[in-house]
């Protein structure tokens, strides 16, 4: 209950400014376009040495060149494909396993729920980066390991959310009514529970995508993720780190791309969530 004096002007609920939201949407679309149409959009081959290393932006190379003299813009465009594709795959995997498992735990209850939930608790009690580092030291740097570990870590959170939504929805009266119609568990989960869980799950997908994206970028930056000659944004930051000492800004270009995309997706997610709750 929020109260205010009868004399005081009422609080104005802040609206989201339109411009940042539009800008975020535009940037996300641009990144998506780059990822899909990289071969068409990139002005140069990302592996070609086209100029001297660490040329400043301008003069034929819009974003300058990297540590070997490759076109930065083309590598950013091709890197989008790796970074975004990998993150999308991780998110999709996490949902493909997390949602059914979470709903199953909620609907089944009993020991099956206990076993799944306690296992998830165990892995969520450990720092995600440590788990990833451990897995990578066992298998060596490998994209498959990285993808699976990141998907697993994201799936833990998706599981928790789906289970919580499922438990909450399964006790609703309309689910009782469906049970009284004699409908099976699968049908109830699909027709009664899932449609009502969709909103929160979509918002979660945005969060998980950002998590996966930053996670992959961080590991690539540490040299443990995507390996050269493949270009991804985190790896490009690492490759070009040395430019800073010569007054160059080469590593800031991919780093800024990472930050901008993460912020944009978060902003759009907040916007969507706020729109739903009528904030």
């Amino acid at each position: 209950m929020s109260l205010h004096d009868i004399t005081a002007p009422p609080l104005r609920a802040p609206g989201f400014a339109r411009l940042p939201v539009l800008a975020a949407a535009a940037f996300c679309l641009a990144c998506l376009a780059a990822a899909v149409a990289a071969p068409v959009l990139a002005p140069h081959d990302p592996a070609d040495l086209v100029a001297l290393p660490w040329q400043p932006p301008g003069d034929g190379f819009l974003l300058g060149t990297d540590q070997l003299g490759r076109d930065m813009l083309s590598r950013i465009i091709w890197g989008a494909r790796v970074s975004i594709g990998l993150s999308a795959a991780i998110t999709a995997l996490a949902f493909a396993f997390g949602v059914p498992a979470g709903l199953a735990a909620a609907v089944l209850g009993g020991w099956a729920d206990q076993a799944m939930s306690r296992t998830v608790d165990l892995f969520m009690a450990l720092p995600p980066l440590i788990l990833a580092l451990l897995a990578l030291s066992v298998t060596g740097t490998s994209l498959v390991t990285l993808t699976l570990v990141a998907a697993f870590l994201a799936a833990l959170r998706v599981f928790r959310l789906s289970r919580a939504l499922g438990v909450d929805l399964a006790t609703r009266d309309f689910v009782d009514i469906a049970r009284l119609r004699g409908e099976g568990t699968l049908r109830i989960a699909a027709c009664e529970i899932l449609p009502n869980a969709a909103g929160p799950l979509i918002a979660e997908a945005g969060l998980r995508f950002v998590f996966a994206f930053l996670f992959v970028a961080s590991l690539s930056f540490l040299g443990l993720g995507v390996q050269p000659p493949m270009a991804d944004w985190g790896g490009m930051v690492r490759e070009n780190a040395g430019a800073l000492n010569y007054g160059g800004i080469a590593p800031l270009v991919p780093a800024a791309a990472i930050a901008l995309l993460a912020i944009s997706v978060n902003l759009l997610g907040d916007r969507a969530a706020g729109g739903r709750t009528g904030r």
Binding site: V210, L214, A217, S218, F221, G234, V237, A241, L244, I249, P251, L252, A255, A256, I258, A259, A262, I263, V265, N266, L267, D270
Partner: peptide
């Protein structure tokens, strides 16, 4: 907070270094 929560450590670090 919206900006900083979504930004990787190395972005800040490198801007700060630069």
């Amino acid at each position: 907070t919206m900006v900083t929560v979504a930004t990787p450590e190395f972005f800040f670090a490198y801007v700060a270094i630069a």
